[in-house]
Nucleic acid binder design. Sequence first.
DNA 1: TCCATAACGGGACTCCTGTTCCATTTGCTG
DNA 2: CAGCAAATGGAACAGGAGTCCCGTTATGGA
Lengths: 205, 205
Amino acid sequence: MEYEGADPGTVRPGGRTARVRAAVLRAAGDAMAEGGFAHLDLADIARRAEVGKTTVYRRWGSVTGLVADLLTDMAEQSLPRTETGSLLDDLKANARLVQRTLTDPRQGALFKAVIAAATCDARTAQALHRFYETRVEEWAPCVQQAVARGELPEDTDPHEVIRAVSAPLYYRFLTTDGHLDEATADRSAQAAVAAARAGVYTRRA
Amino acid sequence: MEYEGADPGTVRPGGRTARVRAAVLRAAGDAMAEGGFAHLDLADIARRAEVGKTTVYRRWGSVTGLVADLLTDMAEQSLPRTETGSLLDDLKANARLVQRTLTDPRQGALFKAVIAAATCDARTAQALHRFYETRVEEWAPCVQQAVARGELPEDTDPHEVIRAVSAPLYYRFLTTDGHLDEATADRSAQAAVAAARAGVYTRRA
DNA sequence: TCCATAACGGGACTCCTGTTCCATTTGCTG
DNA sequence: CAGCAAATGGAACAGGAGTCCCGTTATGGA
């Protein structure tokens, strides 16, 4: 009577298991970028990954489960952050990074699909939240430095400022057909700085 | 040889056809609010609406097509706007309206599903864009009045300001698990005002 | 190196989504 | 109010997504 509840892939995570996971996650990303969330089919992903259909169903169970795993994988690979010494420039760099990501054909489609998946399943939503939490955490220091330099009020919430930079870009990305250009990215950084300076993001406000 | 390309429901839009459309759209809204976009099944919607499954497939064809129709229907029913004479108060009212909508269990789930559907299909995305365009258009006047009063720079883009109010709320709604409260709504209004005053949303900026 | 078994892969099977056909109902027009 | 055809609805059908079974492969530990 062993532990039968152990998820497949957790007892022997190395070798073939790891290769299969990498291939499937890659294939899932490709499929989402090409067809979007709705047309996603686990059998097709298995074919792309040159892996048995049964394996995909056994290890991930559903499309949303697979996306959740993909998101935890994405959260682990972090991107380098700039460090210019100026809050506005740092936030502009962040905004342009987001803008480039969402504008890129493959990445943009991928993010759309991932967001769609997260709205359909609680576990996937948690994975998405964690992904953005790590991204926000990575960029928070540049706000903290601005606070230390006296550019911003003492009790400014760094996370809120970083989120304020991304928010307009994602909002445009999802709810308008206007294209996201660099000027838009710069505006969102400027807006975040203006609001932060005005003390909107202080914790006690 | 008549016009065979005419979509079903367009030649005799009255009577039964209209009743069927209303029943199906209502059922679609219910289904989306309950199960989310992924578990959406046209046969189930037909059952809820007490309508033949064939009818739903013939008139709307797919889940995304149905959502697109639902969105044009939603865009037509407009909500009343406040008129307080103060930009900040107007925008706070707008922000709280959005916050209440997204927080409401049924409406919130519905919007999640609708956004998910829009990421999967170009036609549905267009319908979603038009929906937000009309909403933004409705609220733009209060920004224009603020410009007229001299509260904001001359060439401020009113649409951008309204979008700036909603953006943080939607961003939180989709990418974090933090709950949307009135304080958050007020902050987004304050941030929009601060940025607008700083001239971030002027057209030539 | 060798063994126990975790993990994979193929194929058959089931159920459900979406399509097609045709009879019936019911708007619209004269 | 009468008739034509638009629109609906039921039933049968087809195709594909997801499950199950069991033999095969190869991992991790001794």
